[in-house]
Design a binder for these strands. Sequence first.
DNA 1: CGGGGGTTTGAGTCCGTTCAAAATACGTGG
DNA 2: CCACGTATTTTGAACGGACTCAAACCCCCG
Lengths: 244, 244
Amino acid sequence: MGASIPPDGCNQLICMTCRSRSQSDWCVLNDDEIALIDKVKLVRTCRKGDLLYAQGDTCHSIFCVVSGMVALRKSDADGNSILLRLVHAGQTLGYRDMFADKMYTNSAEVLRPSAVCQIPEAAVRKLLEHNPKLGFQFLNHCAADQESTEESLLHQITLPVRSRLIHLLLTLKDRYGDRADDGSLVVSLPMTRQDIAALLGTRPETIARTINDLVSDELMNFAGRIVSIPNLDVLLDEIESPGL
Amino acid sequence: MGASIPPDGCNQLICMTCRSRSQSDWCVLNDDEIALIDKVKLVRTCRKGDLLYAQGDTCHSIFCVVSGMVALRKSDADGNSILLRLVHAGQTLGYRDMFADKMYTNSAEVLRPSAVCQIPEAAVRKLLEHNPKLGFQFLNHCAADQESTEESLLHQITLPVRSRLIHLLLTLKDRYGDRADDGSLVVSLPMTRQDIAALLGTRPETIARTINDLVSDELMNFAGRIVSIPNLDVLLDEIESPGL
DNA sequence: CGGGGGTTTGAGTCCGTTCAAAATACGTGG
DNA sequence: CCACGTATTTTGAACGGACTCAAACCCCCG
């Protein structure tokens, strides 16, 4: 068999030409090192609901999201669970547990159709030995992730659901937002309201009610998953002084 | 002036002989490298309320708690604040922000009289270059810290104050607990109830009331900061199935 | 066009908060 | 060692944000 012709978009699944390469944790690797990853990695095409790995699994891979969106979900023994964080295209996940635990301490759940590269631990360890810069890259990334988790914790404790929801929308606008003809900002939500609730540490009912309030207050309009925000400044004002 | 005679306990403040050396992040360093730290470090003796650094300060040091206890406090623009985590004797703090930000993203507040070594960033960077193992040590530590922050987040969202308080007591018992003559477990709390409240994301009033409940339910006895727990298993049962 | 998940609405409840005041513990100086 | 002033802790009563449970609704997809 000769080399098969790659289907549309497939060349994005080769690290060597991956558009995220220069901004990802792997940017410190040279061509030879990248080639090693291309040799051993596994490319997975995932649908909503798929698990890249489950909490409790023994950890033996790192994942790199090529396209789509993944969430980290953490559960306890009583069946409670929350979404810790979203992982977008170009970001790496799973490396954390590789250094701290032998098991995954959360599950990686695909929220929308995604392509993901899976890199086995052995290769990662080899690369780390070979190129210490990669370790620093991970250290940086890990430190930044923790800062974001600590901020979630602070928000969770001190802010009401309404403010937390506004914060989330403002985060999503950078990646999923666009300017409409009339100048208003339009964000197309990449997830269900259940997922939003889990991410904000609340219930779907509360999200529905809070959205109602925001619409009544004319801060935004909702049509399914399409949010339009006429005046961003009003939103920013509100989260700066929640009491007023 | 000749070399002054070290006061009592002062030899613990020399890394070379520090009792925590073998279990700390610095255990991967050899004698020469440790000697470098001893040369450049600053030893601080702190009282309750002192700040090792404040949120927003530019980050140029790593700290190592020799004795006592430090808490990481994070605040937002509205004056809300929470305690993120406790840092006990032998543990390192401040390294996180050195890799993620140029500024400290939280404050390090001394909760009880403590001795702390302060190591300037330049020395740390030099050591990292010289001995890559140290970087891995930090990576490990950072990963473990994040796991603990994520667990706090899960607890915060899913568990009531009562369960969170029990969890905290069970954590403190390892370090501050002792067995009494009658077989009950006695924990001497290392912090005020205000600090407990801040750590659990609630108010002092709620802590007082929750303690009342626990005493009424005969799960434990309180006398100021001395807690005695007659039967540990009952506690463990409760946090395994909070609903019953 | 009929599921079936996701979403919304309603009513009632509860946990934790807020505010204010009383009680207690603590540290400091006499 | 005791008295005093301050900070912490406790108690009380009222309020409120978010939860629970349950039912209706809606939309998307097959």
